[in-house]
Design a protein around this nucleic acid. Sequence first.
DNA 1: CCCTAAAAGTGACCTACATCACATAATAGC
DNA 2: GCTATTATGTGATGTAGGTCACTTTTAGGG
Lengths: 190, 190
Amino acid sequence: MEPKEILKQHIAKTITLTNDEFDYFFSHFKYQNLKKGQSIITEGHKVDCEYFVLSGCLKSFFINDDLKMFILQFAMPTWWASDFNALYSDTKATINLDCITDAEVLCISNSDREKMCKELHAVEHFFRWRTNKGYVASQKRLLSFMNNDAKKRYEELLAQYPALYNIVPKHLIAAYLGVSRETLSRLYHS
Amino acid sequence: MEPKEILKQHIAKTITLTNDEFDYFFSHFKYQNLKKGQSIITEGHKVDCEYFVLSGCLKSFFINDDLKMFILQFAMPTWWASDFNALYSDTKATINLDCITDAEVLCISNSDREKMCKELHAVEHFFRWRTNKGYVASQKRLLSFMNNDAKKRYEELLAQYPALYNIVPKHLIAAYLGVSRETLSRLYHS
DNA sequence: CCCTAAAAGTGACCTACATCACATAATAGC
DNA sequence: GCTATTATGTGATGTAGGTCACTTTTAGGG
């Protein structure tokens, strides 16, 4: 399916735009074809855009002082990803975003998103709902962290995104769950 | 300060409304005076509203099968609280909200918020930014959970909200940090 | 097709934190 | 002002998961 059509169907789930309005909205996105392993956002650099995933899989992650990686999000098709903190508050990136697989994305700059939100009320509504969902998902994950042990979190993750098991190396799943790769390995061999 | 004035100043940080617009917006809120220990949202019940805190301190929390409590948020003056998952998706509450101290709140129903967002573009913008901030804060807390031990998280919390130390019993702080009250007690006696 | 690098499995040991049990201190209601 | 709670402190002990060290397997580039 065409990038334009994918985005169109995605936003149609939340709002209704005329064809002209959507065309105008869409004209602010740039298509990018990315290779596996390619970096999109790098810690310490400026963040201009957010990214809508068309195909492939991205990861947003944080590297701590001991060079240990923590994954905030696996971004699958029709998901949005960026360093939202840096993007919204116009500061340098503190998290990274890169490609786990070859990927295609549409990107829109922060200023263009704000412009679109201002010009088209429905677009503002769309982005409000998108963040609402992200916020709720983030709260749920936080609760899962506090309430469940690593095994339970692993089962939850696979129940929710079975595709990940095949696409994503296990040590990245461990980095998402917040356990060591050794512990994860032991979990599913018992 | 008047409830109306508190809300007015709060939203003025993000958007600009005329006096008439704000009066209209404000007319959709109901004032409530609440007692310490009083429950606002109870698991399993319907959730109609979200709450803007004028004074006092609320907690939103989850109780697991072992009756262990996990605190999602301490809501201080000018913070918003609800079971947003239940509110947005019109399902029964899975989390609770109640008063740590005597408190005053303004509440607005889900349908009135949506009506306001539709009628006043600026209000939609306000709620988008409010959730943006909540989302970013939630991501940060998630990272802190993965990256830091209990002591570090405790110090972070106190650095960010020194007031909590005096207002909130320690076992609730433990429930926010995701450690046992015994562990928390040992942390700050060393 | 091979060779190197990345990913994954596994044993031994360590540590942060949980749990249980009980003691003590602070509050709130009568 | 006296109890009954509720909150807090502290020792003893258990355990999930971390770390380190090494081996085995898989996969990608020349």
